[in-house]
Amino acid sequence: MVPFALGGMALFAVALLVVWLAGAPAYWLWTCVAGFLWGIPGLLTMMRHDANRRRRRALSHPEFQVHP
């Protein structure tokens, strides 16, 4: 799930750059900023979810290795 969050944040960052360079209305600029900033808690949530999923899988499947 982490790559999806990073991809979304990257798209909002690129859109921010394009909107800024194009001189679009300010609300588009702030929409891109908000999208990027909302991606941060989403990224942190997905990182925690993936870590918990790996830990649960390691507990239920002994052959599964967890690499820090």
Rank of each mutant, 00 (worst) to 15 (best):
M1H: 11
V2G: 11
P3M: 03
F4E: 10
F4K: 09
F4T: 05
F4N: 12
L6Q: 11
L6H: 04
L6G: 05
G7W: 01
M9I: 07
M9D: 01
M9W: 00
A10K: 02
A10E: 02
A10P: 03
F12M: 13
F12Y: 10
F12W: 12
A13E: 02
A13T: 04
A13V: 01
A13D: 00
V14F: 06
A15G: 14
A15K: 05
L16H: 14
L16D: 05
L16G: 11
L16Y: 15
L17F: 15
W20H: 15
L21Y: 12
A22N: 08
A22M: 09
G23A: 02
A24I: 01
A24V: 09
P25H: 14
Y27A: 04
W28Y: 13
L29V: 15
L29F: 10
W30N: 09
T31L: 14
T31Y: 06
T31M: 12
T31I: 07
C32T: 13
C32P: 07
V33C: 06
A34M: 13
A34I: 14
A34V: 14
G35E: 10
G35F: 11
G35V: 11
F36M: 09
F36L: 15
F36C: 11
F36N: 10
L37R: 09
L37Y: 07
L37G: 02
W38Y: 13
W38G: 06
G39S: 06
G39E: 08
G39K: 04
I40N: 06
I40C: 12
P41M: 00
P41T: 01
G42R: 08
G42Y: 10
G42C: 09
G42A: 08
G42P: 03
L43E: 02
L43I: 03
L43K: 08
L43A: 12
L44Y: 12
L44I: 12
L44D: 02
T45K: 14
M46C: 05
M47S: 14
M47H: 15
R48H: 13
R48I: 09
D50R: 10
D50N: 03
A51Q: 04
A51M: 05
N52P: 00
N52Q: 13
N52I: 00
R54E: 03
R54M: 12
R54Q: 09
R54K: 07
R55F: 01
R55K: 12
R55A: 04
R56A: 07
R56M: 03
R56D: 01
R56Q: 05
R56P: 03
R57H: 07
R57A: 10
A58L: 01
L59I: 02
L59T: 00
S60Y: 06
S60G: 04
H61S: 09
H61Y: 12
P62N: 00
E63M: 06
F64S: 03
Q65I: 14
V66D: 06
V66Y: 08
V66M: 05
V66N: 07
H67K: 15
P68Q: 11
P68G: 07
